[in-house]
Each structure stands twice: as structure tokens, then as C-alpha cells.
Simulated scan of single mutants.
Amino acid sequence: MSAAVPNILTAARLVAVPIVVWLLLADGGADGPMRWWALGLFLAAAATDYLDGYLARRWGVVSSFGKLADPIADKVLILGGLACLVIVDGLPWWPLAVLVVREVGVTLGRLAVAADTVIAASMGGKVKTVLQLLALTLLMWPEGPAWFDTLGWWSLVAAVVVAVVTGIDYGRRIVAAARASRAPAAVTEADADAGS
């Protein structure tokens, strides 16, 4: 049972996303009780990101599913929350657009080589996630002081910069993994041609 707990937490984070989105949209930027519920659920879901990784390492049950699904759950949570803030609070759309392109590109690249190689999260990717969580927490906070919005915005900008830099690095690693997986096949075909 313990082996399944980290993956269950990851799945719970995915389930929380539509609820957070619904609460934010239903609140409509009014900073009412639904906004507080959305913030609380967002923070609880974000906490599972640390907890599932910690438990997986502590119990020695790190899985390929966890390495792939965990970052996807993070992306869906953050992008879903950010999209809602663009809609209900009028937050500029361009950070969301840059992050969506980066996350979709990295995720598709990871899936393309998943059969042969798991591209684990880098330290830069973890820094990006922390910046995004900080930004969304501050920007989502109902009726927070003005400096919450200022710090939240610049944290988001910093997250976008880190996302672009790490996205390039992920792209390089994915291309290298794809080339490495094709190399044995090329050698096998060459051997077959030599023997025929």
C-alpha cells in the first residue's frame, strides 16, 4: 500500500485542479469565500507536490509513472490557476502563453522518449515551480496588501525567465535522449546489412 501513496497524492493533485478552477471562476474576482477556498485547496494541492516526492524517495518507491505524472500534475495546477487569474483579475496573458508553450513542448518531448528514457525534473525546473507557486499564492490571495500583487507579479516574471532557460535545457536533453535511443537501432540495421 505504501508504494502507491506517492502516486495517489499525485492523482489527488490532478483531481484538485478542476475544483480550484471552478471556485476561482465562480468567485469572479470578488475576493469572497470561494476565493479563500480556492486558495486553500491550491496550497494543499501544492503541498502534495513536496510530500509525494519525499515519500517516494524515503520509501524507495520512485516510479517511472511518478517521474512523469508528478511534473504534469504541477503544470496543470499552475497553468489552470494562472489562466483563471488572467480571466477574473485581468492579469496579462503573455506569461500564461509563454508557460503553456514551454510546458506543452517539454511534456510532449518527455512523452516522445518515455519508452526509453525518463527525463527527470532539473533543479532549474524546481526553482521555476517554487517561483510559480509563490506568484500564484500572492496573486490569488483575497484582498491582500498591494505589495502582494507587486511581489507576485515579479515572481511570475522571474518564473517565466527560468521557464524559458530550463525549457531550452530540457529540449537539449530530450534531443540527446532521442538520438541515443536511435543509435542502437542504427547499429543493428548496419549489422544486418553487413550479414546479408
Rank of each mutant, 00 (worst) to 15 (best):
L91S: 04
V104T: 04
V161R: 06
I78G: 01
T10Y: 00
V160R: 15
N7P: 09
A3P: 00
I87R: 14
A47W: 03
L85R: 06
L82A: 12
A178Y: 06
A44E: 04
G124P: 04
K126E: 11
A163F: 07
R182C: 01
R182A: 13
A158R: 13
A183R: 09
M140W: 00
V118G: 10
W147N: 09
A186C: 07
V62C: 05
A26P: 01
V61D: 05
G171I: 04
L68Y: 15
D27L: 07
A38F: 04
P92G: 12
R58S: 01
K67P: 02
T150Y: 13
A178V: 04
R58V: 00
R110Y: 03
P95V: 15
L136F: 00
V160I: 05
E103F: 14
T129A: 09
V88A: 13
P33K: 12
L99G: 10
V106Y: 11
G124L: 14
L68W: 05
A11M: 13
I119C: 12
A46K: 07
L82W: 08
T137S: 13
A47L: 05
A176N: 09
G80D: 02
L156I: 01
V86W: 03
A135S: 07
I72R: 11
V86K: 00
W153I: 12
E143C: 11
T137C: 11
V164H: 02
L151W: 00
W22P: 03
V175A: 11
P184I: 04
L96F: 07
W147V: 14
L139Q: 08
A177E: 02
V118I: 15
T129D: 14
I119V: 15
D169A: 15
D191T: 15
V15I: 15
V5D: 00
V5M: 02
I8C: 06
T137E: 05
L9H: 11
A69N: 06
V5I: 15
W36I: 01
P33I: 03
